[in-house]
Nucleic acid binder design. Sequence first.
DNA 1: CTAATATGTGGGAACGTTCCCACTCGGAAC
DNA 2: GTTCCGAGTGGGAACGTTCCCACATATTAG
Lengths: 338, 338
Amino acid sequence: MEDVARAAGVSRALVSLVMRDSPLVSADRRKRVLEAAAKLGYRPNAMARSLASRKTGIIGVLLNDLHNPFFAEIMDGIEEVAEREGYRLLLSTGGRREEREATALEAMLEFRVDGVIMLSPLLSSAVVRRAAETTPVVVLSRTMRIQDVDTVVTDEAFGAQLAVQHLIGLGHVRIAHIDGGEYPSGPPRRRGYERAMRAAGLKSVVIPGDFSENGGTRAAEEILKMEELPTAVFVANDLAAAGAMARLQEAGLRIPDDMSIVGFDNTSLASLGQISLTSVNQPREEMGELAVRTILERIRGTRTETAHHLTTPTLVVRRSTAHPPVSSGWEEDAAGLA
Amino acid sequence: MEDVARAAGVSRALVSLVMRDSPLVSADRRKRVLEAAAKLGYRPNAMARSLASRKTGIIGVLLNDLHNPFFAEIMDGIEEVAEREGYRLLLSTGGRREEREATALEAMLEFRVDGVIMLSPLLSSAVVRRAAETTPVVVLSRTMRIQDVDTVVTDEAFGAQLAVQHLIGLGHVRIAHIDGGEYPSGPPRRRGYERAMRAAGLKSVVIPGDFSENGGTRAAEEILKMEELPTAVFVANDLAAAGAMARLQEAGLRIPDDMSIVGFDNTSLASLGQISLTSVNQPREEMGELAVRTILERIRGTRTETAHHLTTPTLVVRRSTAHPPVSSGWEEDAAGLA
DNA sequence: CTAATATGTGGGAACGTTCCCACTCGGAAC
DNA sequence: GTTCCGAGTGGGAACGTTCCCACATATTAG
C-alpha cells in the first residue's frame, strides 16, 4: 500500500479510501491510484483490514454434512443473500461429529467472524450459548431456546402430520415410522407422527433409524420381519427413505402398490425419476435467506430481542404413495376415516 | 493478551509462547498463563496472528458445485489430511459460474491463504496462472499445464475406455455417448469414448449433455427420437445418467434388458438401490488427500518442480448393464468382436 | 476582499499478534 | 570465585491496514 501511494504520488490514507471505494475521492486521483495498484499488482490484505477495522465482513457457516443435499440447498439461499449484502462466507464442516464441530466453531471465533450460522448442529446448548456471548449466532434446523440465539426452523411436527394425514387420507391404517434417532430433527418428527396417529385413533410403530441410507435399509429389514406388514411407511428423511425403499423392493414389494412410502426434506433425491418419492418439503432456500437476514439484523444492531422463525412445510406428492392394497382388507374402513 | 499477561504476572511475549505451546516455557508459568486465559475468556485473534506471522495456516478450497456428491467425497479426503496436518480450510463456492468463481478466488488471495485447491474450476488458465504467482495452487480434476500449477487428475479418457470396453464385452455394438459439453471433464471423456469405439471398429454417436440431471433427460429424449435405438448408452457422469435412465424407463424401456447404461464418477447416487448404476470409479478420497499433500509440499518448500498426478479409474459393475437384447440381432457379431 | 463552508488530503496512532534481540539467573566447569 | 552457558524471560519493532483529526485548497456568501 505504501508503494502504491508513492507510485501514485498520494498518501496511504488516500489509497485506503480508494480501495474501499469511498465517494470522497476525486475522480482524477482515484484513477491514478487504481492504475498504480494495477501496475504493482497490489491486493489489499484482508487480515490487516479486519484487524484495523475490527470487523471481518465474514459470516461463518457451520455445515454438518456435505453429503446431504438438504444442506447444499440451504446454502444456495445463504450464498445468495450473503453475496448481495456484501458478506463473505467461511464454511466449515463438522462431519456429524460433535468434537469436530466444536473445533471448527472455535476456529471461526478465533477469526472473529461477524456472525455464525449453524446448520442443524450437534453441539451442546452450553457451547452454543458461550459462542453467542462473543458473536451473533443463528441456529438453523434445530430448536433451541437460548437467550440471544436466534433460530430458523421448520415446523417439523406439522410436516410429519402432513405426511401421516396424507397416508390416512389414502386409506392406510397400518403406518410405520422409521425415525431419525436423536439427531436434531429426529424427535420432533417422531412426535408429530405419534400425535397424528393418536389423533386418528391408530397405533404408532416406530423403528429406529439415523437419517442415513444404511439406517433406512436396516430399518426396512426390521419391517420385513414384522408378522403383519404395514401398508405405509413414513421415513424421517429422504435419504433413509431411499435406502428403505430399495430394500423393500428387493424383497419383492412393489412401491406404491404393495407399500407406500413418504420421506422428509424433499431433496433432489426425492425428485429423481427412479425414486419419485412423496416427501415433506421444507422451504430450504428461503430458510437459508432468512438465516442470513436474521444474523445481519444482529450484526447491524437493528434488533436485540431474540428471534425465532418458524417456516411451514408442505407435502409434495409423487409416485411412492397410493391407496393400500385391496388384499389388506382395510380399504373401506380407512376410507371412512379419511 | 495484555490483560492475560498482567493477570498471570508475566510479559506478553510469554503469553504468546504459551498460546502456541512452545516448549521453552516452564510448566509453572504455563499453568499460570493458561489459568489466567481461561478466567478472562481470552481467545487468540487469528487475524492478528496471521498478520504478524505472515502466514495463515489456511488452505482455500474452491468448490464448484455443492450439489454434486462427487465434490463432497473429495472433500472427505481433503479434510482428513488438512486436519491431521494442522491446516484449516476456507471453503468457497463458485456455483458453476466463472465470474463468481473469480470473485471467490480473489477473496481467498486477499486473505493470504497459504495455498488454494481448485476443484474442477471453470476459470480461464490465465486467471489460474496469475493466482499461482501469488500462492501455491493445485488444480483437481482438470488437466492444466501451467508452470507452477500442480494437478491431480484421473485418467478420464482411460475411464471412458473402460466403460466402452465393458459394453463391447457384453456384446453391444450400437453404443451412444451423452457427453458433458465443455465443462472440464467433458472433452477427455468424450475423446476416450471415441477412441475406444474407433479401436473396436464401431461408429460413435455423441449426444450433447452438460453433467446435469436435466441434461441427461433431454439427451434421452434425443435418443428416443433416433430411428435405430442404441442398445447401450455411456453417460458422462452419474447425475446425467440417472436423468437419462429415468426418461428412458418412462418411455417403456427396461434397464438393462432393453438398454444398458454406464455412468461416470461412481458417486453415492450410482450405488442407490433404485438406480444401481454401472459406473467408472475415481478414487475420490485419495485424490483429495493427494491434493492436500501436493500443496503442502509447495507451502513447505519441499518441492519446486511442477507436479502432475494421474490417478487410475476402475469400473464398478452394477445392475444397469447386461447383454444387448437378442431381438437386436447383433449379439453374435458383437460377441465375435469381444 | 474577507470570512465561512465545503471538499479533499495527509500524518499518526491504533488493532493484537509474532519476531528478534538483549537480558537475567542458576548451575557447571575450571 | 570467576567465567561461561543455556534455559527462560521481557521489551520494542514490525505486520498492513483503518480511523481520527488536523490541515490545505477551492468555492461561495456577505
